Amino acid sequence: MAGTATQKAGTAEPTRRDFIVVAASAFGAVGAAAAVWPFIDQMNPSADVLALSSTEVDLSQIAAGQSVTILWRGKPVFVRHRTEAEIATARKDDTADLKDPEKDEARVKKPEWLVMMGVCTHLGCVPLGQQGEYGGWFCPCHGSHYDTSGRIRKGPAPLNLPVPEYTFLTDTRIRIG
Rank of each mutant, 00 (worst) to 15 (best):
G132C: 11
S149T: 06
D104V: 11
D104L: 08
K109C: 07
E102H: 00
E105Y: 12
S67D: 08
V108I: 12
V126Q: 14
F78D: 02
C141N: 01
K103Q: 12
R73F: 10
A106E: 09
Y134F: 15
K110A: 15
L123A: 15
D100Y: 08
L123P: 01
T95W: 06
E102M: 14
I70R: 03
D104W: 14
H142A: 02
V77S: 07
F78H: 10
C125E: 08
L98N: 12
H142E: 02
V108A: 05
E112Y: 14
T95C: 02
E133W: 04
C139G: 00
C141F: 03
V77Y: 04
H145L: 09
R107D: 02
Y146V: 06
W137V: 05
P76I: 10
W72C: 07
G132Q: 09
K99Y: 08
G129R: 00
M116G: 00
V79T: 00
K92V: 00
T69N: 07
G124M: 07
T95N: 12
T148G: 01
I70V: 15
R107W: 04
L71F: 07
T83P: 08
T89P: 01
M117G: 05
R80A: 07
R73T: 10
W113E: 07
L128E: 10
T95R: 11
K109D: 10
H142F: 02
G129H: 00
E84I: 08
T148A: 11
G129A: 06
P140K: 04
P140W: 04
M116F: 13
E105K: 12
C120K: 04
E112F: 13
T83K: 09
W137N: 06
G135P: 03
V68Y: 00
T89D: 13
R107K: 09
W137I: 06
V79C: 01
K110F: 13
H81W: 04
V115M: 02
G124K: 06
G132N: 09
R80I: 11
V108N: 03
A96E: 05
W72F: 15
R82D: 12
S144V: 11
A88P: 05
K99M: 11
T83I: 10
V77T: 11
S144K: 07
I87R: 12
Q130N: 15
V108Y: 05
P127M: 06
W113T: 09
C139Y: 00
G135D: 05
G129D: 02
L114A: 14
G129Y: 01
M117H: 14
H142G: 01
R82T: 09
A85S: 15
I70T: 10
I70H: 04
F138A: 02
D100T: 13
G118L: 11
G136F: 02
Q131V: 01
K110L: 12
A85Q: 13
G132S: 11
V108P: 01
C120V: 13
W137L: 14
A96K: 03
G143C: 11
V126P: 07
